[in-house]
């Protein structure tokens, strides 16, 4: 059963399809913002299968094992993230105490693998991308942890299921002042985790030519792309789980409401990415350590005072 959960639903297969469709949705909305038609619905699938069929080039100076292992580990970690999240939403007592902390660790793994893989590629552009990714990771983890801690305190539970149960009893956390502030912080952290504009300095395709992914090609690149796509599916769900009562699949209206929440958050991420220029890496770190940390601390204090 565990294997089924991990590989089919809500793990690899389901998350991959949902993630690729989400990526397409993001590109389509972007196209509509630009007032153009945009790609057909199977575009992300075509990109993925094409990359799988291409040659994997090993750069001359690369440390081969680390270079090739990084996308595999990143993909495995992001599938695990999707699985934990899906199971917690499926039934509230599927989790275990502290699974939100495990979850948070696994969320960091894809970014760490990008850092290691790009570092192993042995080319200057990848190295710059790798160092930027590291700084960004250090930047956004600070407010992200404060927000998660706030939610743990508020719900009085260390598991995703417990947080969902709290929201079932007391209403979603989003519907309070501290919840709104924390949601804004978490949304921007998710933006950075996904590596989208304004926080895409690590893979800035116009200045670094792909940055951290510069030297990846073929199936290895496809692994990273798929891991990003799965994160793009799981992180909005994670936000819904933390703030908006989770995805409840009971009856028709529940599914519709869950889908609506999901599409709303993805559209919000897309609009943020389309209306902002890219931040320099020092600006991004300053932004997270300054404004975002202050905001998250304010949210924390408010929530301790019951607001």
């Amino acid at each position: 059963m565990q294997v089924f959960y991990y590989l089919i639903f809500p793990g690899f297969l389901f998350a991959a399809v949902a993630g690729l469709l989400t990526t397409w949705f993001d590109r389509k909305v972007t196209a509509r913002v630009h007032y153009r038609v945009g790609p057909p619905w199977f575009q992300s699938f075509a990109d993925f299968f094409k990359l799988m069929g291409k040659e994997v080039i090993l750069p001359e100076n690369a440390k081969k094992t680390g270079f090739l292992l990084a996308p595999i580990v990143a993909l495995a970690a992001s599938v695990l993230v999707a699985t934990i999240l899906g199971l917690s939403n499926w039934s509230y007592d599927n989790g275990f105490v502290g699974d939100i902390i495990v979850f948070w660790y696994f969320l960091a793994v894809p970014s760490i693998m990008i850092i290691l893989g790009a570092g192993a590629a042995g080319s200057p552009l990848s190295a710059v991308g790798s160092s930027r990714e590291m700084k960004l990771l250090l930047g956004y983890e600070v407010p992200f942890v404060i927000v998660i801690t706030m939610i743990i305190f508020k719900a009085g539970s260390l598991s995703l299921g417990g947080i969902l149960e709290y929201q079932l009893a007391h209403g979603p956390i989003l519907y309070s002042l501290s919840g709104v502030i924390a949601f804004i912080v978490a949304l921007l952290c998710v933006q950075a985790k996904l590596g989208l504009v304004p926080f895409d300095a690590p893979e800035a395709e116009t200045e670094l030519g792909g940055g951290a992914f510069y030297d990846y090609s073929g199936a290895a690149l496809a692994g990273f792309k798929l891991s990003k796509a799965i994160l793009f599916y799981s992180l909005p769900i994670f936000l819904i789980t933390l703030f908006w009562g989770g995805v409840r699949i009971d009856g028709g209206i529940g599914i519709l409401w869950a889908l609506l929440k999901y599409i709303l958050i993805v559209a919000l991420i897309t609009v943020i990415r389309n209306t902002n220029p890219r931040l320099r890496i020092d600006q991004a770190v300053k932004f997270f350590w300054g404004w975002m940390t202050i905001l998250s601390v304010i949210a924390f204090i408010l929530s301790v005072n019951g607001l």
Binding site: R27, A31, R36, V37, G38, P39, P40, Q43, A46, D47, K50, K54, I57, L125, E205, T206, L208, G209, G210, F213, Y214, D215, Y216, S217, L221
Partner: peptide, 17 residues
């Protein structure tokens, strides 16, 4: 709007078709 046909500009020859 060449993205209609799936054409995208990439910054690295390693990604290019």
């Amino acid at each position: 709007d060449v993205e209609r046909f799936g054409i995208t500009l990439v910054g690295s020859p390693r990604h290019a078709d």
